[in-house]
């Protein structure tokens, strides 16, 4: 928690994500807005297979470090945001389950929406994370990949 009472919560783990828990955590008496983004695994395949699961892999230390940088930049751009959580699941995730959850609370909705949008866009482009598509008879790295960029450039 900083001097203004702002708090960050980043986590990369194999445990299922619980958006409602993060929303409760982000609830503050001074905040009139909580924006939640849930990125759920979907059937679309970059490799042409009937995908049943996605498997995420990273270095937890490097990924969490980058997520903290993402939040720091969000706080520079939207100074009024209060609580910011970014949680990313790793390991195997069944279709339809959340792989990433982002929650931002702020006194008013505009900055919460904009900061949450920045956070998810930047997590996808700027956090070290690799996705493997899994189908009943095999698996392969997602072909929807791009060079990792700075959190300032995403």
């Amino acid at each position: 928690m900083d001097a203004k009472g702002n708090v960050d919560w980043v986590e990369v783990a194999e445990t299922p994500l619980e958006a409602d828990l993060l929303e409760q955590w982000a609830t503050r008496p001074e905040c009139g807005a909580i924006v939640t983004f849930c990125g759920t695994t979907r059937r679309s395949s970059s490799t042409g297979h009937d995908v049943t699961e996605l498997e995420y892999e990273t270095s937890v230390e490097l990924a969490e470090g980058r997520m903290r940088e993402v939040i720091a930049v969000a706080r520079e751009r939207w100074p009024d945001i209060v609580a910011v959580a970014i949680h990313h699941r790793i390991g195997r995730v069944l279709l339809g389950q959340p792989a990433v959850v982002i929650v931002v609370s702020s006194p008013h909705r505009r900055e919460a929406f904009e900061a949450a949008q920045y956070c998810i866009d930047t997590v996808k482009k700027g956090v070290p994370m690799w996705k493997r598509e899994v189908w009943p008879t095999g698996s392969a790295w997602s072909q929807e990949a791009h060079d990792i960029v700075s959190v300032h450039d995403a």
């Binding site: 990125g39 995420y56 990273t58 270095s59 490097l62 990924a63 990313h88 792989a99 990433v100 998810i120 997590v123 996808k124 482009k125 956090v127 070290p128 994370m129 690799w130 996705k131 790295w141 997602s142 929807e144 990949a145 791009h146 060079d147 990792i148």
Partner: peptide, 10 residues
């Protein structure tokens, strides 16, 4: 030294 191929998170 970390080697980071193109990423695909989220």
């Amino acid at each position: 030294v970390a080697v980071l191929p193109p990423v695909s998170g989220g």
